[in-house]
Amino acid sequence: MIANLIVGGLAAGCLYAMVGIAIVVVLNITDIANFAQGEMAMVTTFFAYWLLDSVGLTWWQAVPVAILFGMVQGIVIQQVVIRPLIGSPVLSAIIATLGLNIVLNSVAGLIWGHQTYTFPSPFAFSAPLMIGSVPVPVASVVSILAGLAIVVAMTWFLRFTWIGIGLRAASQNPTVARMMGVSISRTSAIAWGLGGLIGGIAGILVAPLLFLDTNLMGALLIKAFAGGVLGGLHSLIGVFLGCLALGVAENLVGAYVSPAFGEAITFIIIIAVLIVRPEGVFGRVKVRKV
């Protein structure tokens, strides 16, 4: 019983983590909390659905194309909406992404309507893996592996490639980074492209588990933020683990403590953790010079 709940929680947590990582990559590099991340992923997922359903590509062909679409979408949005806002109050940019969230949702509604679609997945009909005596759905395993792969790949990218080092430099001190020849507007574009790419992967993995409709990512977005804050927004692995912990906590509290207050108690736990560790469990407290 408890093992099943934990596995279910991990599966849900993985979905939060996927969106969470996409948000955090943009947040850490550009300081902007992207409220449109969920809807960007939703549009990417609908594009993948269109490729599968109308164009007739196979899953393995459609997914890379859709993920590429997600990246281009991120860069276009950055160029049109975010670039003019570099240097303005951060809250203005955040509210602009909120507007974008509404726009993308309406556009998807106009194109695809508000009915639900079943999104295919090559893992949907596989028999669950037995770990000990606990059945674990293959889709959950794929989500966990994909999440870990993204964390590892992003960490490698940010630590060991020239572009990644430039991104980190720009996020730490834009002025000095610019003097060293790092283009701030280009790093912002790369960050948004990466966010769109990772969000697209998240959407495509989430959609078969829920139903695909225009509100696919609405609930996930807030949970992703909450899990990210719990783990600590400055560490990718922290975000990943924070989201997993959030998923498990939700399931356990819902089953054992109080079904009605499940979500509320989860948030109380988050607030309590934040009071003790204001930068999240895995976060580092930034040392600031006056």
Partner: peptide, 13 residues
């Protein structure tokens, strides 16, 4: 929603 969202973005930009 579309027009309102666009206005929100335009005002902020």
């Amino acid at each position: 929603g579309l027009v309102f969202g666009l206005l929100l973005v335009v005002v902020m930009v």
